[in-house]
Design a protein around this nucleic acid. Structure first.
Ligand SMILES: [Mn+2]
Ligand SMILES: [Mn+2]
Ligand SMILES: [Zn+2]
Ligand SMILES: [Zn+2]
Lengths: 139, 139
DNA sequence: AAGTTGTTTAGAACAGTTCTAAAAACTGCA
DNA sequence: TGCAGTTTTTAGAACTGTTCTAAACAACTT
């Protein structure tokens, strides 16, 4: 009846392995911070600060490497809404964003109730990849 | 009956003055490159390269200063679609963008035929500022 | 023309990100 | 469990786009 935490770290290991990534201490620590709560939007710096609090040593270079690997593996999505820094989004499903200025906060909203109609056809020689809707709001 | 170009530079001077900016040689040269043709999407580097071709000396620092001033004056709009660099858009009206990857090209499309319906209300304590639609396309 | 103020400039500085190459750690196999 | 082979991590350097500094210069006012 006690809470079972024993499998948690193994789950992340398995998930990393499934993505073709060795489950190293650093990657597991980062995956834990990223994926064990609900959906998140982090920057490299913010994630680095968070993982440092877990007392597992992770360099900033590894945070960048790992974010890029996770993104390439489809575990994260990169979001660019403001000059100078990237956000990484644990929600890889189809959704859109509120961007709160000047706080720099990102909030998801589902795309299934949103209709984007009347888009022109893609320019010659290109094909559609994705439609991003960014709702910029002010405090 | 000859073509009248004599007023052109004065027009830019007037426009700059109207925006509260002294019509210096550099600002007029940049305004000319930016606004004398149709709508454009430039980066600081690309604009710097272009204005250098006019043989009027303009430093990169001035290009950045001027782009920021023009944006603050409402003459330009800043567009952020990819990590690492800003685009500046001479089209300040309401419109949306195609972003061609990996070229980094931006193309306008009018927003008056596009419907974005079903957006959730802005988060508590915020008010709507703008809705950006970015259609990402691949070659 | 002189004085005042605003602008431009080269170069330094800065922020975010990527690179380098050496040390450390993971994995498969004895 | 030890070892070899390979991947990962790391500190720090490097790099890119952008901003800052403060001195020279140019525009406007009188
Ligand atoms: Mn990258
Ligand atoms: Mn700026
Ligand atoms: Zn999101
Ligand atoms: Zn545009």
């Amino acid at each position: 009846m006690g809470q079972d935490m024993s499998g948690t770290s193994l789950d992340f290991s398995a998930r990393l392995r499934a993505a073709g990534l060795r489950p190293t201490r650093q990657r597991v620590a980062l995956a834990r911070v990223l994926f064990e709560a609900g959906h998140r939007h982090v920057t490299a710096e913010s994630l680095h600060a968070e993982v440092k609090a877990t007392r597992i040593p992770v360099s900033l270079a590894t945070v960048y490497n790992t974010l890029n690997q996770f993104r390439d593996a489809g575990l994260l999505r990169e979001v660019v809404v403001a000059p100078g820094r990237s956000y990484f989004d644990t929600n890889t499903g189809h959704h859109h964003h509120f961007y709160v200025e000047p706080d720099g906060e990102l909030h998801d909203f589902p795309s299934d109730k949103v209709t984007v109609a009347g888009l022109p056809p893609p320019p010659k020689g290109t094909r559609l990849n994705r439609v991003d809707v960014i709702v910029r709001v002010k405090r």
